[in-house]
């Protein structure tokens, strides 16, 4: 059988999401961002919300998210994405609004905006990519860096006396009256990817149903920042990140 006999629409089992464009990604091999982008693109398309969706890009590795997802975007100053999203959604209640933020953006410089947007119960989705490191600036300590984990600014490992404790900000957000869904997921396996997509879909549906703020944390690997091969980074994540950041729903109100 010739290969061209097989390449037919009816045999298609997998394709690039329609809302992902053809720009070459700047993400490193083994990075979780590409998978998370793909899931968001699929969810928006499957919900038929392409023309109603406004994304808010962060400062961090995902600063160029707008180059990959073919939707309308606003690029926020570092940490301010939830403030932008608040106004976008309040001024345009029929739009579907989400922020896409890393751990430094969301849990360090943007802590106030994150907590207050969630506490007001803004009808937005916050996608929180937690890889425990500042990737874009070259691998410095993040608020979520594990104790003992070495980075460029804690080269001998995170020391609690010097650097304080890693921040479980999703646990904090789950305490707030304004959140309806706070879940911690990952994308290192097919099963995990499917679960994360399901939770993203729920989060976006919550935002359009006016249920409050939904937070989807994705515990992620940063092979470059962690200075590991992609497969080792995933293994390291399972062995070290998951025990401190256990996966599952912290809050899920129907």
């Amino acid at each position: 059988m010739d290969i061209n006999d097989i390449i037919k629409p009816e045999n298609l089992v997998y394709t690039k999401p329609r809302l992902m464009n053809d720009n070459a990604m700047h993400y490193c091999p083994g990075c979780s961002h590409g998978v998370i982008h793909k899931l968001i693109a699929e969810v928006i398309d499957e919900m038929g919300m392409e023309e109603k969706t406004i994304g808010v890009a962060p400062v961090g590795c995902a600063v160029f998210a707008y180059n990959y997802l073919d939707i309308d975007w606003e690029e926020a100053a570092h940490g301010r994405a939830p403030a932008l999203a608040t106004a976008i959604k309040r001024l345009n209640p029929d739009r579907m609004v989400f922020t896409y933020q890393g751990d430094g953006d969301l849990a360090a410089i943007g802590t106030a905006e994150t907590i207050h947007a969630a506490n007001r119960g803004e009808n937005i989705v916050i996608v929180f990519v937690n890889n425990g490191i500042y990737g874009m600036t070259g691998g410095q300590m993040a608020p979520t860096t594990l104790v003992g984990m070495a980075t460029a600014t804690c080269p001998y490992g995170r020391n609690v006396e010097l650097n304080g404790h890693p921040l479980k900000i999703s646990n904090l957000l789950a305490q707030l009256e304004g959140t309806c869904l706070v879940t911690r997921q990952s994308v290192q396996s097919v099963a995990a990817v499917r679960k994360t997509k399901k939770m993203l879909r729920k989060a976006f549906e919550n935002s359009m149903a006016g249920k409050g703020t939904s937070v989807v944390e994705v515990v992620s690997a940063c092979a470059s920042g962690w200075k590991m091969t992609p497969s080792k980074a995933n293994k390291w994540m399972e062995e070290n990140m998951f025990p401190f950041y256990p996966l599952g729903d912290l809050k899920n109100i129907d």
């Binding site: 606003e74 926020a76 403030a83 932008l84 999203a85 976008i88 106030a112 207050h116």
Partner: peptide, 18 residues
């Protein structure tokens, strides 16, 4: 009423962008 002047001006940015 925003949580800070910083949040307020960034809300302005968000709204103006739409």
């Amino acid at each position: 009423q925003a949580e800070s002047e910083i949040a307020a001006i960034n809300m302005v940015y968000g709204g103006a962008g739409t």
